[in-house]
Simulated assay, not measured.
Amino acid sequence: MTDPRHAQPRPAPADTVHLREIKSYVLRTGRVGPGQARAFEQYGPRFLLNYAPGAFDAEAAFGRAAPLVLEIGFGMGGATAHIAGVRPQDNFLCCEVHEPGVGALLKLVGEQRLENIRILRHDAVEVLDHMLGEASLDGVHIFFPDPWHKSRHHKRRLIQGPFVNRLARHLKPGGYLHLATDWEPYAQQMLEVLSAEPLLQNTADASGAGFVPKPDYRPLTKFENRGLKLGHGVWDLVFRRA
């Protein structure tokens, strides 16, 4: 599938030109099933937002004022729906371009009667650049981003210094950035990158070697459960804006 483009973005600010080389997603093909297609028709008009450069009015989009959390790349949406369900006091703005995943989350939103999710089918980097102001977010979730295993592909990894700085500047003071990965070399790189960002402070204590126990709100995915049974690790990082 290709990335839907609903509007032509305005030029990025001079300090964010470097981000144009990084995308927050990997293009994947996939078929939208009948249930997902029905969810698009039934729930899309209410829970899907159009990408539109300009200041994002979160209160108007959600119909209330509440802490705003940005999720970048939610896959098939199971974890997103769970978190929204156990944190009804928060609003979740979710970016994903994989259409079957969007349909799957819409289906869960309808089945679980979730009111605190809105979805943007667009690159989260451009959403940050053109819709969200600095110090506008109470949290950011990025769970299991593509690790780009081969060394020559590491430059494609999402978690790099310039992007993390951009995320940090979008967080309110005290806002948090939560990352999770099941690829240890990427976990170590994430830790190095986040630790080097002066706007962020690690919430882990010394005993965790920089990582934190899985927060209660993040559920175990079926793939994560399978990996843990095979002895594979999962690493969570939670940093806060100073």
Rank of each mutant, 00 (worst) to 15 (best):
K107D: 12
L108V: 09
V86G: 03
V125P: 00
V125G: 00
I83V: 14
G103F: 12
E126Y: 15
V125T: 01
G85W: 07
G101I: 11
P100L: 10
V102K: 02
A124W: 10
P100H: 06
N116C: 06
V102A: 05
V86P: 08
L106M: 11
L93T: 10
L105P: 02
N116V: 05
G85H: 12
E126F: 15
R87H: 15
D90Y: 14
L106S: 10
R118Y: 11
V109W: 09
H98T: 05
G103W: 09
I119R: 05
K107E: 12
C95F: 12
A104R: 11
Q112Y: 11
A84K: 07
C95N: 05
C95G: 10
E111I: 10
I119Y: 02
V97R: 01
V102P: 01
D123W: 14
H122D: 14
P100E: 07
Q112S: 09
L108F: 08
Q112T: 10
L105C: 03
E111D: 14
N91T: 03
D123L: 14
E99N: 00
G101T: 10
E126Q: 15
G101L: 07
F92A: 04
L114G: 09
V97L: 00
G101R: 06
G101Q: 06
E96S: 08
E126N: 15
R121D: 00
R87C: 15
N91H: 08
R118K: 07
C95Y: 05
L108K: 12
L120S: 08
G101D: 04
A104M: 05
E99R: 04
D123Y: 15
V86N: 03
I83Y: 06
E111V: 14
L93I: 12
E111Q: 13
L106H: 11
V97W: 00
G110Q: 04
E111C: 08
R87A: 15
H98W: 10
A84P: 03
V102T: 02
V86R: 06
G103V: 10
H98A: 02
I83T: 09
P100I: 13
L93Y: 13
H122P: 15
Q112L: 05
D90E: 10
V102N: 02
E115V: 07
D123C: 12
I83S: 07
E115L: 07
I83H: 03
A84F: 03
L108Y: 12
N116M: 02
L105I: 09
D123H: 13
G110R: 08
I119Q: 04
N91A: 08
H98P: 04
A104E: 06
N116E: 04
Q112I: 02
I119V: 14
L120R: 02
V86K: 03
R118S: 09
C94I: 09
V97C: 01
R113L: 01
E99P: 01
K107M: 13
V125Y: 00
L93H: 11
R87Q: 13
L108C: 05
E111P: 12
H122W: 15
L106K: 12
G101A: 09
E99A: 07
L105R: 01
V86F: 07
I117N: 05
E115W: 05
D123R: 12
V86Q: 07
R121W: 01
G110M: 13
N116R: 09
E99M: 11
N91R: 02
D90W: 15
L108R: 15
L114Q: 02
E99V: 03
